[in-house]
Design a protein around this nucleic acid. Sequence first.
RNA 1: GGCGGCGUAGCCAAGCGGCCUAAGGCGACGGUUUGCAAAACCGUUAUUCAUGGGUUCGAAUCCCAUCGCCGCCUCCA
Length: 494
Amino acid sequence: MSLKLYNSLTRTLEGFKPVEAGKARVYVCGPTVYGHSHLGHAKSYVSFDVLIRYLRYLGYDVTYVQNITDVGHLTDDADEGEDKLDVAARREKKHPLAIADFYTESYFQDMDRLNNLRPDICPRATGHIVEQIELVKTLIEKGFAYESGGSVYFDISKFAEYGKLSGRKVDEMMAGARVEVSQEKKNPADFAVWKKAEANHIMQWPSPWGMGYPGWHLECTVMSMKYLGDAVDIHGGGLENQFPHHECEIAQAEAATGRQFVRYWIHNNMVTVDGQKMGKSLGNFILLKEVFAGSHQKLSRAYDPLAVRQLVLNSHYRSPLDFSDASLHGAQSGYDRIKQAVTALRDKLKKAPSGEADKKVQERIEQFRGKFEEAMNDDLNTSVALSVIFDMVRYANDLLGRKDTSRQSLEKLNEIFTALGGDVLGIVQEEYAQVGGGGVDEQLLDGLVGILIDMRAKARADKDFATADSVRDKLGALGIVLEDSPEGTKWKKV
RNA sequence: GGCGGCGUAGCCAAGCGGCCUAAGGCGACGGUUUGCAAAACCGUUAUUCAUGGGUUCGAAUCCCAUCGCCGCCUCCA
């Protein structure tokens, strides 16, 4: 068994075979940094993060490149629309690159909280203007692009395979297209690779064709080729980027190099909120920071970043994912259950009697691993993979309830939780903080709650249940839950 | 107008020709445990997969039709 991935280019499930054995070169379209990240980013980047993690689990030497788009492109080819970063810059009265820096940091903050691994290289578009100009020159030299009115357009009539990724035919597309056709183009479907800048455009650079800025699709082609070579194993992105963005990337790259640009195109599906496309006008546009803080009107509470991650992994990356307060709530409960079991397992680990690792336990563990890998190999079926984690939770709870479970058995179980739930899925953490951040002095809080637990224990011993329950209820109102067990009372913050 | 996808229990969701009288999670209900809780554990919760036809020895899975929903075709993850 080995990894199979659905390749958008061929529309089939294919066995993964990298260009160079043992290595995986992956490029994922990164964000345009003009605002805080939202739920759509969560689905996309968690999905690709799991791909990267699983490739590494399988032993591939992965190079993961994800761009940061810090130059806003025009919204169409007809000189209309606005540059996103320019708009944000005017709104916030800052330089576009200050905007880009600010939201880049915000992006990584959110992705870190979702437990996404940082890409190995995060190139910025503005740092690669020279390379982009070089590619434009190459395209002109090879006859695939032409200058017109200070801009340079890709001549799709020269690239017969244009449309092969998205399955579109150039003439069919024109019928209902909403894009206004620029007079500068030879063919309406030609797209800009270099755009002449108007005077009020803040970000512009000198080029052989005058002052301007790069076309929308150029940066990914250039940066992908610069850091990963002419032939990339995997190029990922949101489904909405399949056309025109990725189609144009292919055209640019393959016209320039004459060889296949990307082996496997992976597209993840979109996010809806309460069954509808997320949009600012619909009032269902939810930022990740709002989810983590519970500060959006659609949400009844704050949700753990990893609960969001779990919700993403609960469905397949190629299925659309609907976020709602109810679905988040369900994911949070499930996440809590896994966390609870792993925490209990690790607690018990320290106290369990030493002995041989039980053979039956090891067999079960190998079954879990087998089922997990089978699911992940099948185009990253995280939904089934996650169900294996829940099987492990049930099994762990069962073992914990038995006196004769050896420490070695529990260690094996902990290892598999860490490997599958942690390293691959990223939902089992190395350490669980008792207090969920928020600048609270953990030691102080632990001490204070400890005092109350002791007082309550005394009340319980004296059968003064009214006092005992009062302590518990009052702590509960503050979000601190007490759990009695034979080993004493534990507490956690919810 | 063109292209693509989806419709599985109260909710999320896997399954994509026989192992399906359909995984897993959430929720609900009953039980064990508990001073009472919480957590945990056990059990129950879809003879059925939008609807109607068809193909097949056999369909949630393939085909056709109908209804409903969603996305892309403009930057967007």
